[in-house]
Design a protein around this nucleic acid. Structure first.
Lengths: 220, 220
DNA sequence: GGGCGTCTCCCCCGCCCGGGGGAGGCCCGC
DNA sequence: GCGGGCCTCCCCCGGGCGGGGGAGACGCCC
């Protein structure tokens, strides 16, 4: 069965463009459109789309509020991809914080847009999409960049967990991390488990990969 | 005790520059100079430097041949850093293949040069220096780039092992890699062990980190 | 023909890793 | 005060991981 998508954008032109791009795929179906975040809730309830492509800036209710509203009030909410024009849109980070599953640049190539929709539909943690990573790299001292910060906050890593993750990306074992942080090995295990859970990683290797792919750490 | 360095370059100006940069550090001592690779062996035998900073292109014997000669004939040979002017110097990869421990751009910042010398002196596998990684990134589809290829050949990963490493960097477990390659789990274990040994990694996580840091794989 | 390297598979073994659940102390905010 | 989040530590337990050694089959090169 196809991936169903709801488009939410105040500009008809953008909606038409997204529709054209997405409908060109035979495994994606655009099931509805809305011109403002305020209209999203009932539409989501009625259409039950797999994915909502949500504009950030809209007149009545912006994408951030709408994202929060959907996630708060709808049962088994759809995946939400935030759509934005600017790469350095602080609003986007807000949206990610609000619980969106990824974001999309309007000027992205059609293939990228399609890819993003498919990925989030599969639940494939677009928590850390390549675009976020690229952003992080661009603005990035890797660690203090707004994107990386957003990623962190989205993953809701605590300070201690982030610290542990950083040491994991340096190849340290649990025992070595424990020695470095001067805590017990069991404590480290607790933190590592928390990191794995929050990043959706199965083991420390996957967590380290995610850290690299997200721009949480930069090579070199 | 300080790190002792032998400079090998046909241009006096370059030698003077390197000497100035390195002697400015109180933990580094330049113990000798040579103008050609042909003079290296006896000098290394007599001075027993920790590190040889070796130019690639020299009139009589180039840095590649000299590197081979030193590693073949000298007991407990020094670490060798290959010095080059051009970033995309194919000769450099040859030198790495010949057994050099890292390389250095002549126009690198003094701090970088000092850093490189200290690192190789510590034996800190400069097998995968940041400069190689940057090179790989610059030229790089990550995989087919000359630098990545050189890194591969330097590490002497076989095709199969490289394939396994690539799947490791995607977060796959041994069982999953086995399924993907349609071989037994024991076979994968053998390959993984070989990769770990060749990369000097203790576990798969460290191997993946090395893969990222070396440019063997690029984030995104 | 006889190495040598690669790929394949097998054994045993120890251990770190990760999951689950529990618990106490701390600070902060309601 | 009381809850909640965070950090800390503890238990048990299974499984994947990594080390060691061995071995057969194939192709390549001398």
């Amino acid at each position: 069965m196809p991936v169903t998508v709801l488009l939410v954008d105040d500009e008809p032109l953008v909606r038409a463009g997204l529709r054209a791009v997405l409908e060109a795929q035979d495994d994606i179906e655009v099931v509805g459109e809305a011109a403002d975040g305020a209209a999203v809730i009932p539409l989501v309830r009625r259409l039950r789309p797999d994915v909502v492509a949500m504009d950030v800036r809209m007149p009545l209710m912006d994408g951030i509020e709408a994202t929060r509203a959907v996630l708060r009030t709808v049962e088994a909410p759809p995946k939400i991809v935030v759509v934005t024009t600017f790469e350095n849109d602080e609003y986007v980070y807000e949206a990610l914080r609000a619980g969106a599953d990824g974001f999309l640049l309007k000027r992205a190539r059609p293939a990228e847009i399609v890819h993003a929709v498919r990925l989030v539909a599969e639940g494939e943690s677009l928590l850390f999409p390549a675009s976020v990573r690229r952003l992080a790299a661009r603005y990035g001292d890797g660690d203090g960049s707004p994107a990386a910060r957003a990623v962190l906050e989205r993953a809701a890593l605590t300070e201690r967990e982030a610290q542990v993750l950083r040491l994991m990306t340096r190849g340290l074992s649990n025992a070595e991390i424990a020695a470095r942080l001067v805590v017990g090995a069991e404590t480290v295990k607790t933190h590592v488990s928390a990191v794995l859970a929050k990043l959706g990683a199965r083991d420390r290797t996957q967590a380290v990969i995610t850290a690299y792919e997200s721009g949480f750490v930069a090579p070199g």
